[in-house]
Design a protein around this nucleic acid. Structure first.
Lengths: 276, 276
DNA sequence: TATTCCGATAGTGAC
DNA sequence: GTCACTATCGGAATGAG
């Protein structure tokens, strides 16, 4: 039961497990590598929402991996390597999510990867979530603001990685991750849609709008699909033959959350693991 | 239906009526005199809660009677006479309430008479209410604080009258009734029981406590009644004969709110008017 | 920035 | 300090061998 779990150190527990697969059920664990493991977010804020967690291995102790700030206080090259490991795992997760998008929705949409600069959960975790923010677990203003892709709280992985190649003074400034600065961002009352930037004024209105945006996206993609299908039925285009959307037919995705449900745990398929 | 009446000037409407009895139903109007009328508070904050309203008659215009402050800006002797008229009517109302207390509860308890220094309702009204503050309509902190007999917001009529006989500078100071001063009193967070002065911390706890206090009072009075009954059965006391509690058996009270109900309108009996 | 529960707080609309 | 409705904000408890 992953219902009301006030275990704020549970990710650290996961990160310490020598053999994640044998100690974590598939309803929690999606996959793992030598350096990371990926779990379903128990309270997904998008249709797809997973967490990539660095395993506690030398040269890192639990303390180094407490959060993003503590990681960025480590030696830069070591920190960057860990982020690259997370990035690699996240890219695999992204592919799995996209496969499941195709299965369930017949189209793909964006996937975000990023960190929260401050967190109640006691171990670093990289959010990998679909770009919709539609979920019954999306309840509070701070929920929404913490995943808004352009508000500044959600730190995109590629941006964090870019800090390493920027001016050292810039790196140091960003690596500070001053708590109070970021706290203010969450209290922004505008509740602006991340897609169209309109202010919605309240969470219920925002949620309805986000659903509208996703429905519009779905409609657009369905129309695109329909045009493709027609081209396939009457292949008059001499330019190229129609292709399938599924770019990875050999992989069997199991990144399947319970769509619209409120169980708190992602529902998974029955197929086998597909990590590297 | 006196259900959801957002008419903030309704008391002024009442106060202007030439013939209250013919234009106001007995579910609203309890009684009237030449100078006042008494209505049931549509949202009683105690078991008994009525409002004595000055009628608009020379030398007063509606403006003079807008609230207590505007009244106290009138000539002192005229203002005092109006208050004395309210006082007389309120004393009659008090007697009627006490009769109904005896009928329903077999004992009497205190009755408060007083003003709110600031009000959203646009016409002066004297609150006459039983000293219990037990009512389903007692919902908010400001409700409770505005009737707390020792907090300073509820201005007891006898205190207001005493200002007239005090030093003129004192009168002028009190007559100012500075809005912001009194607003603060309503936000007092302590929620102290008006009987035992204990802080209750939240409205639900306060309401439960107020009910407890009233239940204890009821129990005490029932015990007193029982002792009296026993003395009557065995009249061994040579000092004096037992007497009835009802000091006004000739009057038929109709000051009967719906006990514990949440209709918003006081339920009345079927007997006739009993004003002077 | 864990959730959930409870309650206080704030803004609105009522006609 | 009119009410009632909606939503937000704010603290506290939560888990457990």
């Amino acid at each position: 039961m992953a219902s009301s779990a006030p275990n704020l150190a549970i990710f650290r527990d996961y990160a310490m497990k020598p053999d994640p697969t044998s100690s974590l059920p598939p309803s929690i664990l999606l996959s793992h590598s030598d350096t990371c493991l990926t779990v379903f977010d128990a309270f997904p804020k998008s249709i797809f929402h997973l967490l990539v967690i660095p395993r506690i291995k030398p040269p890192f102790s639990a303390r180094h991996l407490a959060d993003l700030r503590s990681l960025l206080q480590c030696k830069k090259d070591v920190a960057k390597e860990l982020l690259m490991n997370l990035n690699e795992e996240a890219n695999n997760v992204k592919i799995m999510i996209e496969e499941e998008m195709m299965k369930r929705y017949k189209f793909k949409w964006d996937i975000w990867m990023g960190f929260h600069p401050i967190s109640s959960m006691e171990h670093l975790h990289l959010h990998v979530l679909s770009a919709d923010l539609c979920s019954p677990k999306m309840k509070l203003k701070k929920h929404f603001n913490s995943f808004h892709p352009n508000l500044g709280f959600f730190l995109h992985l590629k941006d964090v990685l870019s800090w390493f190649d920027a001016d050292p003074s810039f790196y140091r400034r960003m690596a500070k991750l001053d708590r109070s600065q970021y706290e203010l961002l969450l209290k922004d009352g505008d509740l602006c849609c991340w897609t169209c930037d309109r202010a919605l004024g309240s969470m219920p209105k925002l949620k309805a709008h986000l659903q509208d945006e996703f429905d519009k996206l779905t409609k657009r993609e369905k129309a695109t699909l329909e045009r493709k299908r027609k081209r396939m039925e009457a292949p008059s285009s001499p330019m190229r033959a129609p292709v399938t959307d599924d770019e990875h037919p050999e992989k069997t995705a199991r990144v399947a959350p319970s769509e619209g449900a409120d169980s708190g745990v992602a529902v998974v398929g029955t197929s086998a693991d597909c990590n590297e």
